[in-house]
Design a protein around this nucleic acid. Structure first.
Lengths: 139, 139
DNA sequence: CAAATTGTTACTAAGTTAGTTGCATTCAAA
DNA sequence: TTTGAATGCAACTAACTTAGTAACAATTTG
């Protein structure tokens, strides 16, 4: 159960908020859609709020709503908001000094994988919350 | 310590084998470069072997060597060989039947993320082991 | 003041991975 | 034919990460 689902949960929540922007929601209502506990949901909502993607209000009649319009929110925004781990991790063993591969593989691989990560993020940037919601409504 | 490093370790091993293709290696020698145990290394080597990226020989004077030339090996080949987990995982909660978002988010998100994953794999396909080794030699 | 809601911390349970150990299998050389 | 060295593989432990829960402080409305 150690796979990081925060990104997909966050997208689910954002889609829930964007599906109908006229009504505000509580963490309990959103938790119902995801079928988990409000407290768990709030942890993700708090990150989305800190990233400026949603607005929340504490206290009685507290609520959550999108802070921007769905066409102006990309999956990259959500991905960055939840601070999900990078797609690739690089091992960090102590270098074997006599070995050129051992000494340099890390920085060389980092350069290569950063480009790949960047490409992936560019791809996420092209998918808007709006298009995702449109797909959901098509079903 | 639960981050999956098999891909980066596999690239390290392949770079070690490709750095000088004239001499064969044993798992013990490769383990020295990564600074870990030969047995651990062999688990990854076995996957690379099954994927046809390296050739191995059992018995006395056993060895490992590349099965192809470095320009013909891409990081995607290595990525697929080690069967690393996908870049994104999607949560699977029970659907809340009354909620259209809950019922459809999974398939919609899968479509979107498959495209992103594909883009990432295309990016990996463009990086050859040869270019990586050249970068290492530049250092 | 009371009720309801977000924000946050602490905690437990479960899953994943690194890393080790041990052994069966295989092959070359003495 | 025996011995030694190597891969391949299975079992195991420890460490780490995450899901999920519970509890509570802070806040806001009525």
């Amino acid at each position: 159960m150690a796979a990081n689902n925060q990104f997909s949960i966050a997208v689910h929540l954002m889609a829930g908020l964007g599906f109908c922007t006229k009504t505000d929601r509580t963490s309990a209502q959103l938790a119902g859609s995801v079928n988990t506990s409000p407290s768990f949901i709030r942890r993700t909502l708090a990150k989305l709020s800190k990233a400026g993607l949603i607005e929340t209000s504490k206290g009685k009649n507290g609520f959550c709503r999108l802070a921007k319009n769905p066409p102006d929110i990309s999956l990259l925004d959500i991905y960055l908001a939840v601070e999900a781990p990078k797609a690739f991790s690089i091992h960090h063993y102590e270098e074997t000094n006599a070995c050129q591969v051992s000494c340099n593989i890390k920085s060389v691989l980092e350069d290569a994988l950063n480009k790949t990560q960047k490409g992936m993020e560019d791809s996420l940037a092209k998918i808007t919350l709006c298009s995702l919601i449109a797909d959901i409504k098509k079903h």
